[in-house]
Amino acid sequence: MLNCSGGKLKVYGWAEDTRRDGRDAVVEIWPGGGHHWRLAVASGKDERTNFDYAFLGTTTASVRLHLSR
């Protein structure tokens, strides 16, 4: 989820691994405004990793969910 308010952008949610296939669920967050990217990784069936990041001074982010190789 994305929420923009009070001069900051919040990106929050979770990554969850739902299969026993040796691959991880990965969420990549690439915020605008010169901020460093962030990762949330869930490794192993039924593992869930919550994330909650705030970025001051930007209103954009690219968020991508994928499986590791």
Rank of each mutant, 00 (worst) to 15 (best):
M1K: 06
M1F: 14
M1I: 08
N3H: 11
C4M: 07
G7T: 09
K8Y: 14
K8M: 15
K8A: 12
L9S: 02
L9R: 01
L9N: 04
K10G: 03
K10Y: 09
Y12T: 01
G13V: 05
G13W: 09
W14A: 12
W14H: 14
A15R: 07
A15I: 07
E16A: 08
T18Y: 03
T18E: 06
R20Y: 13
D21L: 04
D21E: 07
D21R: 04
G22F: 02
R23M: 06
V26G: 01
V26M: 02
W30F: 11
P31V: 06
P31N: 01
P31C: 03
G32E: 06
G33W: 11
G33V: 09
G34Q: 06
H35V: 10
H35C: 05
H35M: 05
H36A: 14
W37P: 02
W37A: 02
A40V: 09
A40W: 13
V41L: 07
V41R: 15
A42N: 12
A42T: 11
S43Y: 11
G44C: 07
G44Q: 06
K45W: 12
D46Y: 15
E47I: 14
E47N: 15
T49A: 08
T49G: 02
F51E: 00
F51H: 02
F51T: 01
D52G: 00
F55T: 00
F55A: 01
F55C: 01
L56G: 05
L56N: 06
T59L: 02
T59I: 09
T60S: 12
T60I: 09
A61V: 13
A61W: 12
S62V: 14
S62W: 15
R64N: 10
R64A: 07
R64G: 01
R64Q: 08
L65A: 13
L65D: 00
H66I: 04
S68R: 09
S68W: 09
R69I: 02
